[in-house]
Design a protein around this nucleic acid. Structure first.
Lengths: 237, 237
DNA sequence: GGCTAACATTTGTCTAGTTGTATAGTTGAA
DNA sequence: TTCAACTATACAACTAGACAAATGTTAGCC
């Protein structure tokens, strides 16, 4: 006899359910207690199955909330013209952003250098979450020179994208001057926002964007959920 | 592995924000709902963090109004002239001390060496608690040469500060010769006195103070509640 | 101006549900 | 015996939603 463990057959059954479309991406699976009743096994056995699926990136569990079907990875091109909303819309996914924090404060040394300011000059700091089809994809921090863009905070709050907010403040166009990419592990709060597990791989990019005159307008730091995004460089554009 | 709970890391993040001056003393923190969005957790989890901070006296909440910063960690300059009462008064906080124990006994080897005595010579030992605005900030042990300062015990009991007690015994001035700083974790009794949790970080300093002639007058050991104090070295003075 | 009433905001509390983890026990097979 | 798979139970940590209570704000009225 083959003797496949019970938990493995449960994992297969659930995986099949997802493939059949019984549970959509982003949807919540029934709670473990309910699943264990359905399969007639102990809760731990279901957990074993779910753990396997989580490791394969098929589902993701949030303590207290439930187990959710993970989304498919998206290609995210990085070139001269990086526009989160356009990038995703091109793939037929619905982009969205969620403002986590918005403040104006003095620039740090690193930030001032990137924006061509003096340390201590005022900057707008935007902390936000970028979503694709309602699923968090990236944590983004963007820093703008406050003196040049005094009304940006309001615009960021109201507009649906950073590009639109910059346009409302008179920056009709801007291009990416430089992007640096490194790999990190998710901290606890990053993991919570991105709905991944602590210690999961993260792509961290830091970037400088300039307007057509070559004046820096944005210093950005973005943390992508490594499982959900594939950064692509080069190609067209 | 004992992973740190999410609420604890949130408490640390907020405490740090306060220490960094992002929220001034007396200022209102963002409402719980906003904080829970910023950290990506449920409001209850933020409340757990705020409860911890409130217990430590860092913030206090008023129903219907908000959560306010009660006190930011005090800066405690360490230089030639370390005076607990003056240090705190300069920051607009009310210092106080509470005597835990007062005794005269024979000096140990380490203590004798620091004070330039022979082991077994009599020393006064002061054990006390230092408070800022009624909040315990540090546990202090001070050891004085008994033969040189025979009446110190009584003075320590009556005067409000060690500086005053020394003055009453004829030591008009004294300066810090040396201070050593290490990090420790709070023991149960330390935690109890400082009203922090067991295992919380503690700054331990050992110091030698001398009178204008260069004769050692005090050998001190102090345990600061790490959350409530930031030791600063150098600068003015 | 000064007062009140209505409303929105914000913290406090409660109940219920869900996943994470730890411990101990049972069963079946090599 | 020993080991792996599974069961059983309990508790901790976090989520979710609802409502109460206190506060701050604003509009309207005298």
């Amino acid at each position: 006899m083959a003797r496949t463990p019970v938990w493995k057959s449960i994992a297969i059954a659930l995986t099949d359910d997802i493939a059949q479309g019984r549970y959509e991406t982003g949807a919540k699976l029934p709670p473990e207690a309910q699943l264990s009743a359905r399969f007639g096994v102990n809760r731990h056995t279901v957990r074993r199955a779910l753990a396997e699926m989580a490791e394969q990136g098929l589902v993701h569990a949030r303590r207290g909330a439930g187990v959710f079907v993970a989304a498919k990875p998206a290609d995210y091109p990085i070139g001269k013209r990086v526009r989160f909303h356009q990038n995703l819309a091109r793939e037929g996914r619905t982009p969205a952003k969620q403002v986590l924090m918005l403040e104006t404060r003095a620039a740090g040394v690193r930030e001032a250098e990137a924006l061509g300011l003096a340390p201590g000059d005022p900057v707008h700091v935007y902390d936000g979450l970028s979503l694709a089809d309602g699923q968090p994809v990236a944590l983004a921090q963007a820093i703008f020179p406050a003196e040049r863009l005094p009304d940006l905070c309001g615009a960021l709050r109201e507009e649906t994208s950073i590009t639109a907010a910059l346009k409302a403040c008179g920056v009709a166009d801007y291009t990416r001057l430089e992007t640096r990419i490194t790999a990190k592990l998710a901290t606890a709060t990053q993991a919570l926002h991105l709905r991944i597990s602590e210690g999961a791989p993260i792509l961290r990019t830091t970037s400088i964007s300039v307007d057509p005159d070559g004046t820096p307008v944005e210093f950005g730091r973005t943390w992508f959920a490594g499982d959900r995004v594939t950064l692509t460089v080069g190609g067209e554009d």
